[in-house]
Design a protein around this nucleic acid. Sequence first.
DNA 1: TACTACACATAAGATACTAAGGTATTAGAC
DNA 2: GTCTAATACCTTAGTATCTTATGTGTAGTA
Lengths: 116, 116
Amino acid sequence: MAHPPMTLLKGTLDVLILKTLGWGPSHGYAISRWIQQSTGDELQIEEGALYPALRRLEEKGLLESAWQTTPTGREAKVYTLTAAGRRQLKAEVTAWSRYVSAMTRALEARPTGAIA
Amino acid sequence: MAHPPMTLLKGTLDVLILKTLGWGPSHGYAISRWIQQSTGDELQIEEGALYPALRRLEEKGLLESAWQTTPTGREAKVYTLTAAGRRQLKAEVTAWSRYVSAMTRALEARPTGAIA
DNA sequence: TACTACACATAAGATACTAAGGTATTAGAC
DNA sequence: GTCTAATACCTTAGTATCTTATGTGTAGTA
């Protein structure tokens, strides 16, 4: 990669986690690797951000967790999207799109008159 | 507008301010209105976020300020982009684009294998 | 046997928001 | 004349979410 990984914009981690779990149940470490991989190593999820985020989402009822043994023979806490989590995923993807178009408009807009 | 204004994602205000000032000098209140306007009222800048942000940017040497009388006859602190600010604007627009493509990749990516 | 990858967790610190309040001036409505 | 809305600035307290650093333990491999 040309650049080092970017730092996360606060508020964008949740949707990444929800989206990853939208593909099926997974555990923290794997979620983090998947995000990093799917963004071409542009986004790196710090563990200090990841695990608290998973707890938050679970407390909100968006995820459910259960300890399981992974194929590699280790204990891992596997998270699954709840129905509410799936709704939240949709909502957050939509919100992100809206945010991006708003930003795009601002960053491309040309002033009609003076800014003052 | 169909929705109420969205809350800012932390870290995106600076580039909005820099971009606005890229069109020419302006003062805080006008910058805030311009951003709100150019995003079609999607983004609303709270004053408690705006004024500290302007100070931050000035302390970093990206902006310069001077009190002036506006055409409406009021005193206003008019900010101007410095050369460093103009470089920073370019850099932050680029960084934002990179972030958006990373997010897009993650939110559209399809897993090749299992996520676990 | 040492090191890397896997897998979880937490604490301290930084930062940048929101919400809520405050000051003061100008213009227009009533 | 007085009230209100819009303009223009500022600050504080509270909150959320990140980074950095540290800690635990296991499994595989060189």
